[in-house]
Design a protein around this nucleic acid. Sequence first.
DNA 1: TTTTAGCACTCTTTACATTCGACTGCTAAG
DNA 2: CTTAGCAGTCGAATGTAAAGAGTGCTAAAA
Lengths: 333, 333
Amino acid sequence: MDDRKKRILQAIVDEYINTAEPVSSGSIARRYNLDYSSATIRNEMAELERCGYLDKPHTSSGRVPSALGYRLYVNELLKDDDISIEEIKYIQSKLETRVNEIEELTRITTSTLSEITHYTTVAVGPRNNMQKIEEVKFVLLGKRNLMAIILTDSGIIKETIIKFDEDITEEQVNTLTFIFNNKLKGKPLEAIDKPLEEYIFSQMNYSLNVIKPIMQQLKKVISEETEYLLEGANKAFDLPEFKSLEVAKNFINILDTKEIMMDLLNTGFANDINVYIGEETENEKLKDFSIVTFKHKYKDKDLGTIGIIGPKRMDYSKVISVMKYISKKLNGE
Amino acid sequence: MDDRKKRILQAIVDEYINTAEPVSSGSIARRYNLDYSSATIRNEMAELERCGYLDKPHTSSGRVPSALGYRLYVNELLKDDDISIEEIKYIQSKLETRVNEIEELTRITTSTLSEITHYTTVAVGPRNNMQKIEEVKFVLLGKRNLMAIILTDSGIIKETIIKFDEDITEEQVNTLTFIFNNKLKGKPLEAIDKPLEEYIFSQMNYSLNVIKPIMQQLKKVISEETEYLLEGANKAFDLPEFKSLEVAKNFINILDTKEIMMDLLNTGFANDINVYIGEETENEKLKDFSIVTFKHKYKDKDLGTIGIIGPKRMDYSKVISVMKYISKKLNGE
DNA sequence: TTTTAGCACTCTTTACATTCGACTGCTAAG
DNA sequence: CTTAGCAGTCGAATGTAAAGAGTGCTAAAA
């Protein structure tokens, strides 16, 4: 894999990202000044195809990058810093808006990302099992509704409402607050479990009628998937690959069954930015799409993961540049 | 408009709802035992077309109901009680699940509706300006975060978090709670306005640094569009009308720009159930779709509006029957 | 040895012509 | 008033041909 092959591959991928049409040797020779004739490029393309970096839809057509081709492109050939000054200004103005809740920050980041890249963006909150409980609050609403608020160290606030068939007193609320905090402060969310329920029951003289619903609801809340945010789903429909109804249907299906995205977003490895190209994820439905995810942090607090989903020929340079820039901005230059 | 015309129109609409293909005089004569020859039906169809109830895609094709045709069908020809026993059982089992929050009830109703009808369902909460404040609570989270909770008479709970640059004391929280409740109990949400801010400021000796952010955030929350729920968006893609990319794109666009749906759902008139057929709404994008909305109530509390969006040839009988049934169930038989 | 011009070959796309079939509309008979 | 029957219309499907875009290979040039 010599240098010239790489340059040609890069030109092909760039061209394909722009045009969405199979790339011919002629168009490369013409538009990229590589100083080789189309014939030479043709030979190299044949070679690149043999190595698995390019595909050919049919005998007499131009070439299309394979997943392997994109992979090489992403790993080695990416040109960084692919954002314009206007875009930088736009991002800055967006990120400067004062936010009150971290959910709002996630929302802003997600929508900005979608607006700049023109791809569909999704976000999920941080994984529950990474979070530690900082405080538990109970608030009586009316006489029979209790709101439970759990603050975690990543700043996520989970709140839920528990309904009772009997009146709850302020005193009961105070005791509950004391005991829960006593037992849970600093513990992971999973500490809300059966043993805790038994312990609390043994410590308090309230009927199970009070404690059971609380525990049930709390367990439900912490087991619930975290917020799932979707931005710019309709943008995808302007892409040429969506002329195929099959592709469009798959896309809607992926977004509708949150599990697929959740899985992907949550399995991110150590890297801050992960790229999944088409069939690299084993999911059949994703074979026509690529997904780029990044760990969303603010002042080193984990705010979850944000992902961009687009066609395989997505503009990786742009996407990754923007992600890196936002990441940098959020974590103090 | 005699009775026979109506029977024939009904047959045509029924047939078209089933097949999504232009309906020919022959198929009606064959499949519906109206005891007339295809020629007679042909004559009537010509007449119905002249009156504007039917359309013809081209000279030698079968007929398709026009918006006016559907309208007549919905207003006069609908057969009620179009739900099977299995479906009734399914709905019952769904509605029986014990719910803790009304949002959960809305979620269950919305998804049940989508599952039974196989159409896409959306829901919005009740309009803010209809609601009265029942109670306001403030809860200190940490030292500089204040959670504000507003309970309204329709049971909707709005909560928000306000960040401060200085520490807040428990005492301040108590005073705030007292004053806000004093001034707001029983008042509509819009009572949270500038005069209130000034009044509170005049009554308390806290700096504006505390009161301003609270008022700002509260105003923001009450002005915010209420929850928007979407269920079964992907189901639409199995419908034959979605073979047209144009239609699919419009659909995604409608769902993505919540305002359109919001407008429609919120403008519902006195009726409990409203039907909008295709071009009846002036919105160009909606011309290929019909929307049926119903006021979602539980024990006479307003829980907002739920809407079903589907193709113009949606199964109105089924949809309306299911809605009526659910409505009945939620409001005590 | 590497590059390149040139040409034969392949395969898709588009256009056009033709056929086939499903309707309707109308007429005339029942 | 109903209906059988038939001419006429239009769309969908099929076949064929020509055009166009690209490749692969060969042989000459650098």
